[in-house]
Amino acid sequence: MFCLTILIHEAGHFFTAKACGIRVDEFAIGMGPRLAHFRKGETEYSLRLLPIGGYCMMPGEDGQDEDGNVCTDPRAFCNKPKWQRFLVLVMGAAMNIVLGLILMGILLGQSSAFNSVMISKFSSHSALQSAGLQVGDSFTEVNGYRVRTDKDLSFALALANPDSVNIQVKRNGKLVTFQNVKLNTVTGSGGKKTTQLDFYVQPIAKTPLSLLQKSCADTISVVRQVWASLAGLVTGRFGLNDMTGPVGLVQVISESASAGLQQSFWAAVENIVYVIMIITVNLGIVNLLPIPALDGGKILFLLIEAVRRKPLNQKYAAMVESAFFALLLGFMAIVAVSDVMRITTGHGIGG
C-alpha cells in the first residue's frame, strides 16, 4: 500500500515530464538493489528492494550529462523552461493529494449523511452545555485552531488539554468565545485521560454536490492536520515517539483492520482505505518541504535560480543534496528503530 502511494507520486512526475518532452531514463519504485525491470521505449521500469521511496531519473537534473559535462541534450530536464521544471517537481505531491481526495470521496460515499460542526443536541451531563454552549452553535475555533469541518473539530479536541479548552462558536451570526472550558474525559488502561464528546452535530444531507464539497473540505482538513503536526514537531509539542515510518505502518494498518473486523469486513476495508488516504496526503505534503533531497528542496533551488537569473553552482548544490539525503536516510533509520521498539516493548526511542 505504501508502494501504491509512491507509484502515484512518481507517476505524477513521469507523465508531466513526458508531456513536457523531457526524457525519462528510469522509472523506479523502491530504492536500493533492483529486483525486477523491463524496458519499454527509452525508459527502463524498475522495482527495487526497499519500499521507502522511488524516483524518475531524467538527464540533466543536476545540469550535467553522464560524463560530468554541461548537459546539452535539448530534452534534458535542465534545458527546459523553469515553469515546466516546476510542474514536473510539484506534480508528484499534487497527485498524492488528488489520490487522497479520491479515496476521501470513496469513504464518504458509503455514508448516508455527513457531519457538520453545528450542535444539534447534548448528552446528559454535558460539559459543553454546562459551559454555556447552545443548540445551533457552530464551532469556529478550538484553542486557536480554525474549525471548518468535523475532522478539524475532532483533531483540535484530541490535541486539547481537556481541563482547559478555549472554544469559539458562531451564534446567530456573532462569534462567542468560552474560555477555560473543562471537558468530560475517560481514563484509558494506561491512565491517560482522553476527551469524551458529549454533544451531537447536525447532519448534512448527502447529494452529489454535498459529497464533492465534503470530500474537498475533508481532504483540505487532512492537509491542515499534516501541517499542524509538522509544526508540532518543530516546536517540540510532538516527539519521535509520535512519529512512525513504513515499519510502524504495518502495526497501524493491522490495528485499523482488526478494529474494523469487529464490526464487519467492509468496515475493515474502509479503515485500511482511510489509512492509505492519510499516508498519501502525508507523502505529498512532506515532499513539498523545502529540504534538499526532497521535491520541495529542488523547487527551492529552482526559485533561487529564477531570482538570481542564472543557474546555481551544481557542484555545491549536489553536495548539499547529498548531505541532506544522508541525513534523511539516517533519520528514517532512527524512526524505523523506534517503530520496532514500540512494537516489541510498547515504547519508542522518545519514551
Score class of each variant (00 low, 15 high):
Ala113His: 15
Lys170Phe: 01
Gly236Pro: 06
Glu321Gly: 02
Asp150Leu: 05
Ala306Glu: 03
Ile119Tyr: 07
Gly54Cys: 06
Ala257Phe: 08
Val234Phe: 03
Gly68Glu: 02
Val226Ser: 04
Thr149Tyr: 00
Phe155His: 06
Gln314Met: 12
Gln110Asp: 02
Ile253Trp: 12
Pro33Gln: 15
Val247Ser: 03
Trp227Met: 03
Asp218Ala: 07
Asn287Phe: 00
Leu302Arg: 10
Leu89Gln: 01
Phe301Gly: 08
Leu159Asp: 01
Leu303Ser: 14
Trp83Thr: 11
Gln168Asp: 09
Asp73Arg: 01
Leu327Cys: 12
Ala205Gly: 12
Asn184Asp: 04
Leu49Lys: 12
Leu289Ile: 14
Gln110Trp: 06
Thr140Gly: 02
His125Ala: 07
Ala317Trp: 09
Asp218Asn: 15
Gly236Trp: 14
Gln202Tyr: 08
Leu4Gln: 11
Cys3Ile: 13
Leu211Lys: 11
Val234Asn: 02
Ala158Ile: 09
Ile22Lys: 05
Gly260Cys: 08
Gly297Thr: 08
Gly346Thr: 12
Ser264Phe: 14
Asn69Gln: 15
Asn184Trp: 01
Met31Asp: 09
Arg237Ile: 04
Leu249Ser: 01
Leu329Asp: 00
Lys170Gly: 11
Arg48Gln: 00
Asn271Tyr: 05
Asp73Lys: 09
Thr43Asp: 15
Ser164Tyr: 14
Leu197Val: 15
Pro203Phe: 03
Lys193Glu: 11
Ala293Arg: 00
Gln110Phe: 12
Val234Ile: 15
Phe155Cys: 03
Met1Tyr: 11
Val340Gly: 00
Gly248Ile: 10
Arg171Ala: 08
Ser264Arg: 07
Trp83Pro: 02
Gly284Val: 05
Gln64Pro: 01
Gln84Asn: 12
Gly105Tyr: 02
Asp67His: 13
Ala156Tyr: 01
Gly296His: 07
Gln168Phe: 08
Ala306Tyr: 13
Leu288Gly: 07
Gly297Arg: 03
Met243Gln: 07
Ser154Gly: 10
Ala231Asn: 12
Arg148Thr: 07
Gly63Asp: 06
Gln213Thr: 12
Ser264Asn: 05
Leu209Tyr: 12
Ala257Tyr: 09
Ile106Val: 14
Cys3Phe: 15
Arg48Trp: 05
Gln263Met: 03
Gly30Asp: 13
Leu289Gln: 08
Phe301Met: 09
Leu261His: 06
Ser154Val: 02
Leu294Asp: 00
Gly239Glu: 06
Leu197Arg: 14
Gln134Phe: 08
Ala17Met: 10
Gly348Arg: 09
Met91Phe: 13
Met277Ile: 10
Thr280Arg: 03
Gly32Ile: 12
Thr43Ile: 10
Phe77Gln: 04
Pro162Ala: 09
Lys18Ile: 14
Gly53Cys: 02
Ala268Glu: 05
Ser164Phe: 04
Gly350Trp: 05
Val226Met: 07
Phe86Arg: 04
Ile97Pro: 04
Trp266Ala: 14
Glu141Thr: 02
Lys214Ala: 06
Gly21Thr: 14
Leu50Lys: 02
Phe15Ile: 15
Thr194Met: 11
Val226Gly: 08
Phe114Pro: 02
Asn313Tyr: 10
Glu42Arg: 13
Pro292Cys: 08
Ile253Gly: 06
Gly188Met: 09
Leu288Tyr: 04
Lys310Ile: 07
Gly100Tyr: 02
Ile106Trp: 00
Leu175Gln: 08
Ile97Arg: 01
Lys18Thr: 10
Asn271Asp: 00
Thr194Pro: 05
Val223Cys: 13
Gly12Val: 03
Ile291Glu: 04
Gln179Glu: 13
Ile334Leu: 15
Ser112Gly: 13
Gln129Phe: 05
